[in-house]
Amino acid sequence: MVKSGIAPRKKIRAFIRTGRVVVNGEVIKSPSFKIDPSKDKILVDGKPVVVEFQIYIALYKPKGYVTSAVDQHHPTVFDIIGDTFGSRKLFPAGRLDVDAEGLLILTDDGEFAHRLTHPKYKIPRVYEVEIRPPLDDNAIEIIEKGELTLRSGYKPLPAKIQKIDEGKILMTVFEGKYHIVKRIIAAAGSKVLSLKRVAIGPITLEGLAPGEWRKLESEELEALRKILNL
């Protein structure tokens, strides 16, 4: 029962002790009772419980939050989700720095997360970036042609840059390497002042405020799966 993700361990034990859990018409008396979510009919307080096989959510990470599960100095994105998914262990498919904000995709699907972050699939990630000083046209051309070399010697994939206004750009990168946006901007002679990820592939922040999350729609998930060859 615990592994099904219906609720945290303590809650499930309390439900069972008070006879609130029924599986296939039988009141369950042991927390170790094994269920098959694909076949068994599960009721808690007389209401059907649907056990999701895998979970995919879009979350708007606010500034000041970290993407790790535990941190001694900052709140984490998992504080936002709380115990919504019971004992299910979610993890972010990619990360954002504590001073950055924007879209995160969290899941318990390991292969999905691996492919979403793997450079082979070139998933576009779109960022609103405030920079100083502004990039000149020559620097933008070098970045977009993939001719820029980072200080480490690495040459990033070609990126796309759209000017929003003086000192603010919309930047699309096709790889998830560590600090890739900040490193590209630094190598081009500028500095990132603020960064917000607004899209990952077809998934956007639309409809989400900082600290809010939602499950991915089936159409969104299918679009991502198609890109990832899943």
Rank of each mutant, 00 (worst) to 15 (best):
K155F: 04
E220D: 13
G64D: 10
K47L: 01
L96H: 01
F91L: 11
G86A: 10
T117A: 03
G25H: 03
R17T: 04
R95N: 00
D97A: 03
P210E: 06
D137T: 07
G201T: 05
E144C: 01
G102P: 00
D40Y: 14
P124S: 03
V126N: 14
M1F: 14
R9M: 06
Y121F: 09
L157W: 04
P75C: 05
G110L: 01
G176F: 02
Y178R: 10
P8A: 03
V23H: 12
R132P: 15
G207R: 01
G207C: 00
R151E: 13
L116P: 05
I140F: 05
M171L: 12
S38P: 04
E141N: 13
E128F: 04
E206D: 11
G207Q: 01
Y56W: 11
L170G: 11
I143N: 03
G167N: 09
P133A: 14
A186C: 09
I55A: 14
D45V: 12
H73N: 11
G19R: 02
I185E: 06
E52W: 08
A223Q: 12
V66Q: 06
F112I: 05
V77L: 08
T107H: 07
S218E: 15
G201W: 03
L195E: 06
Y65M: 03
K196I: 09
K63C: 07
G110T: 02
D137N: 04
G189H: 07
K3S: 14
K34D: 06
E130T: 11
V98S: 07
D79Q: 08
D165S: 15
A223L: 06
K34M: 07
S218C: 15
K145E: 06
T67C: 14
F85I: 05
P119M: 08
E206C: 02
P48C: 02
G189S: 05
K120N: 03
P158T: 12
M171D: 08
E144T: 04
G25N: 06
G211S: 00
K10P: 11
I180F: 04
Y127Q: 09
H118E: 06
K160A: 11
K39M: 13
G102K: 04
L135E: 08
S68F: 09
R225S: 01
V51C: 14
D83V: 13
K63Y: 09
H118C: 03
I81P: 07
L195R: 00
L224R: 10
T117Q: 05
A187Q: 02
K215W: 10
L193D: 11
T76G: 11
K47W: 03
I180H: 08
G153L: 10
